[in-house]
């Protein structure tokens, strides 16, 4: 027998599942071939070590496994409820969404209008920056209340709640 064939049969040989004649052929080969003998020895030594590994005491883990499962079931039952809610509410989804949209848009528009009505825009014409600074100080306006409108001389001053 050749080494390749021995390699293929090695595990069956070690397990003792080969017929006696094949097994004896391998015996003979291993006696003569140091490479296969070494391979065989390595495997049997490894197996001996692995088989020697102690059987372990199994700790009881049921309580925590059970707890975790219950927790996850609770979480997923909430998800089921939500999905259920989604399926029932599906036929109304479009009308509900459009109502909500209308509400939001009109709300925004209304509040903007109300805010705008509180503001006073004072359009004042100035010739120089000194004049602007003077005007701001004079009227006790916040420093950032002046905004440019195009050309240097034309400014509008916006204040909240009017001045």
């Amino acid at each position: 027998m050749r080494c390749g064939k021995i390699k293929k049969l090695m595990y069956d040989y070690i397990d003792g599942t080969l017929t006696e004649s094949v097994s004896q052929d391998i015996d003979r080969h291993i006696d003569e071939c140091s490479k296969c003998a070494k391979h065989h020895q390595n495997i049997t030594q490894n197996i001996a070590l692995l088989k020697e590994l102690p059987k372990l005491e199994t700790p009881d883990m049921w309580t925590s496994i059970h707890e975790k499962i219950m927790e996850e079931e609770q979480a997923s039952s909430l998800a089921v409820l939500w999905n259920h809610f989604k399926t029932i509410s599906q036929p109304y989804a479009v009308p509900v969404a459009s109502c909500a949209l209308i509400l939001i848009v009109s709300g925004v528009l209304l509040s903007r209008g109300m805010l705008a009505s509180k503001d006073t825009v004072i359009d004042v014409q100035f010739r120089t920056t000194q004049e602007i600074a003077f005007y701001i100080r004079e009227h006790n306006l916040p420093d950032n209340s002046a905004t440019f409108h195009g050309e240097f001389e034309t400014l509008s001053i916006t204040t909240e709640n009017g001045v």
Partner: peptide, 14 residues
């Protein structure tokens, strides 16, 4: 599930 746990815990743990 508890029966399955009891049956397989040693195999799974080792």
């Amino acid at each position: 599930f508890h029966m399955i746990y009891q049956h397989f815990k040693t195999k799974v743990f080792s």
